[in-house]
């Protein structure tokens, strides 16, 4: 009797173990895909920003005769960033280009404050809302990416996920962090 029962129990235990490993493995795959998808979302939003800027500059041009430099720096930064993403530059270069664009845009928005007529233009107001929403989206997409990375890393590092991750070669992902010092700095405010 026990000759039959023992192997059956052993087989069942093995089966349960395999099912458990498969469950964890699938969980890891799901998390890794979530990370990939979240990264792709950031690119989508950056692209959206590139597409938006020409319209914005075109609308602002008429009102901002004396701010040629500001506008040109925005266009230049935009073109560099767009070119970089077209040629799929490596992540750190692209990140530098994008933060350059962010800086130029911030500068532009400060200058806009000096032109009440421009601010009152409906078309421009709409574009400005789109632009600030896009900036938000980039931020939220990066935030979501970091959330996804954190969940992946927790799973990879913590028991029992770490064993399965080790067996099938799942690695920790790296967080999105600002590499450009200038962008980390808190903007200076002066009341002169």
């Amino acid at each position: 009797m026990s000759m039959i029962v023992l192997p059956i129990i052993a087989g069942l235990v093995l089966l349960a173990f395999v099912a458990w490993v498969i469950g964890i493995f699938n969980g890891l795959v799901r998390l890794r895909n979530a990370v990939k998808n979240a990264w792709a979302q950031i690119d989508v939003q950056l692209k959206r920003r590139h597409d938006l800027i020409p319209n914005l500059v075109e609308t602002a041009k008429g009102y901002m005769e004396h701010e040629r430099e500001t506008l040109e720096s925005v266009v230049k930064a935009r073109n560099q960033a767009a070119e970089g993403s077209k040629q799929s530059a490596d992540a750190s270069t692209q990140s530098t280009l994008e933060s350059g664009l962010s800086g130029a845009l911030r500068n532009f928005m400060v200058v806009v404050e000096r032109y009440p007529d421009l601010k009152a233009d409906t078309l421009f107001a709409n574009l400005q809302e789109e632009l600030s929403s896009t900036e938000n989206r980039i931020g939220f997409a990066r935030q979501a990416y970091n959330d996804a990375v954190m969940m992946m890393n927790n799973k990879v590092e913590m028991f029992p996920g770490n064993i399965v991750a080790g067996m099938f070669n799942f690695n920790k992902e790296s967080f999105f962090e600002i590499e450009v010092e200038a962008e980390r700095e808190v903007p200076k405010v002066s009341f002169s």
């Binding site: 900036e135 938000n136 931020g139 939220f140 990066r142 935030q143 990375v149 967080f175 999105f176 903007p187």
Partner: peptide, 10 residues
Amino acid sequence: PPHTPAAVTP
């Protein structure tokens, strides 16, 4: 998780 620029200074 690390804060992103938009999260720290909207």
